[in-house]
């Protein structure tokens, strides 16, 4: 059984994500998951065994804080150094249109493996646009509410109480999106090549043309004939 499609270096490939985007993506992956598993030790009741992996609740708390600071730093680097990329990302999200709605409507069938025809997509398809809106929002909410909970003495008590449920809701929605995203970006047969886009930075040109036709035409369309 095939887990993810094989990486083919000998076919025409186009760049999908630059180094900064990939650094930021995988940096967030590591720090988010560390925060998630240490945080779940508190969120779940009777999860002492989870804390024990990190040396008990105190150890889990320390790892949680170190990872949270790491996540904040990566977020800041990505926002400052990758400002142009973030603007381009945001502009693509704003292109949410009929093709994206069609994609989201048909996607549940595609998700479970039924063959469907979807209209051409921009750089990010309807589902990816949704993920691009929800996940970063949740991460920003997690960061803000997290620092409020870490230093409650310098904030009003009412804000600390709001931060408690905000942190939990943002964690759950963020984790739901991240687990969907992780599966769709790797083991889902319909989107396997996208894994290499984030791992190596390039995707097969024919895959890009098929999955993100509008983006491919706009970005690499003139090069198509030269190949």
């Amino acid at each position: 059984m095939q887990w993810i499609p094989e990486y083919k270096a000998d076919v025409p490939r186009v760049e999908r994500f630059n180094f900064l985007a990939r650094f930021s993506h995988w940096g967030h992956t590591v720090t988010f998951l560390l925060c998630l598993f240490t945080g779940l030790a508190l969120f779940l009741s009777d999860a002492g065994w989870l804390a024990a992996i990190f040396g008990g609740y105190a150890g889990a708390g320390l790892v949680h804080r170190i990872a949270a600071v790491g996540l904040t730093i990566i977020l800041a680097i990505g926002m400052v150094a990758g400002f142009k990329g973030i603007i381009a990302w945001f502009q693509d999200i704003l292109r949410f249109g009929v093709n994206d709605i069609m994609f989201i409507v048909k996607f549940p069938l595609e998700f479970f493996g039924f063959p469907v025809k979807v209209p051409p997509q921009t750089r990010f398809n309807g589902g990816e646009k949704g993920n691009s809106m929800v996940t970063p929002t949740m991460v920003i909410l997690l960061v803000l509410s997290g620092y409020i909970m870490w230093f409650p003495a310098i904030f009003p008590g009412g804000l600390v109480r709001v931060a408690y449920w905000t942190h939990d809701i943002a964690m759950v929605l963020g984790t739901v999106m991240v687990s969907m995203h992780a599966y769709l970006g790797s083991f889902h047969p319909g989107s396997g090549e996208s894994f290499w886009g984030m791992w190596k930075g390039t995707v097969r040109a024919d895959w890009a043309k098929h999955h993100h036709a509008i983006w491919y035409e706009e970005t690499y369309g003139d090069k198509k004939d030269a190949e």
Binding site: P5, F111, F112, G113, Y183, H188, G192, R204, H211
Partner: peptide, 21 residues
């Protein structure tokens, strides 16, 4: 569930997922 069903359905129509999609 999707991991299983998408692979089962792909086996019925193998051409669909050749090399990813």
């Amino acid at each position: 569930l999707s991991f299983v069903t998408s692979r089962l359905l792909a086996n019925k129509a193998p051409a669909h997922t050749e090399g990813g999609h």
